[in-house]
Amino acid sequence: MRKPIVFAAILFAAIAFPFVAPGAEYAIDVVFLILLYGTMSAGWNIVGGFAGQVSFGHAAFLGIGAYTTGILAQHSVPLPVAFLVSGSLAAIFSLLIGIPCFRLTGPYFSIATIGIGEATRLIALNWNGLTGGASGITLSVTLPIVTQYFLALGLCAVVVLATIWIQRSRFGFALAAVRADPDAAETLGVNTTIAKTQALFVSAFILGCAGSIYALHYLFISPDSVFGFSTAIALVIMPIIGGLGTVTGPLIGAVIYTAIREQLEANFQNLDLLAFGLLLMAIVLYEPKGVLGAYQRFANRKKRVASTPAAAPR
């Protein structure tokens, strides 16, 4: 197999990157952001892509992770502990959400998750004693960017490995069946509720950890930044651009998303979301498998041409 080698090479390059580019703070910062967004995107993809349950409420998990780290850091809890607690709390919260929401299917589930996003944002906004309300939380810890970088890289690598495992495992088959036809899956012995809840649990844990890194990077969090609807939208858009339900798609999507946003956001407000809306529609209409699907089709055509040199025109 070629794939593990490619994976190892990319991982090696990513590890070496901060050492070959010392002082290039900006470049490290950009790659860090891509890794962080890639992690979030791949985390969302477990529920939205593999299990086909499109969630517009994943910002809630990110926000819970970020706030947990923010609050714990204020009380001088060691950061590694805060990091793990962040992920765990988000995961526990996912169970509370999963029980009511997975009674709904398809579009109804998706709309309910908009409600979750909105509800958590409102709670964060109004629970002044804990969250500081609208003025948010400022962290007073500083973590060198290189440390942040390796934290994001480590989490991202773990998520990619987890997705690869899921894709090949019994669990992955259950999710695929849920996505394709939940009723038929049930009659074949797949407990669809458990499968979906497990997927959401893993996904929420990842987003909680990512939220922790987010807080440590920006050092300021507010309800509108982490719980905001635009964050939720970003989480949906990235995996779709790249390729739903694939391993590398969400990462590719994160690269494209970050690039477009950096270009547009600086110059034209809201034009980035307009562009993403159009891109999303175009992808759904013409290439539902995202950039990765388009690439694969392209590669297959080339391969076919290359492997049949003798195929004379009729």
């Binding site: 949906v236 809306g277 999303l280």
Partner: peptide, 9 residues
């Protein structure tokens, strides 16, 4: 769903 979500955006 996603198509209409894109339209909404």
């Amino acid at each position: 769903l996603l198509l209409l979500f894109g339209l909404w955006l």
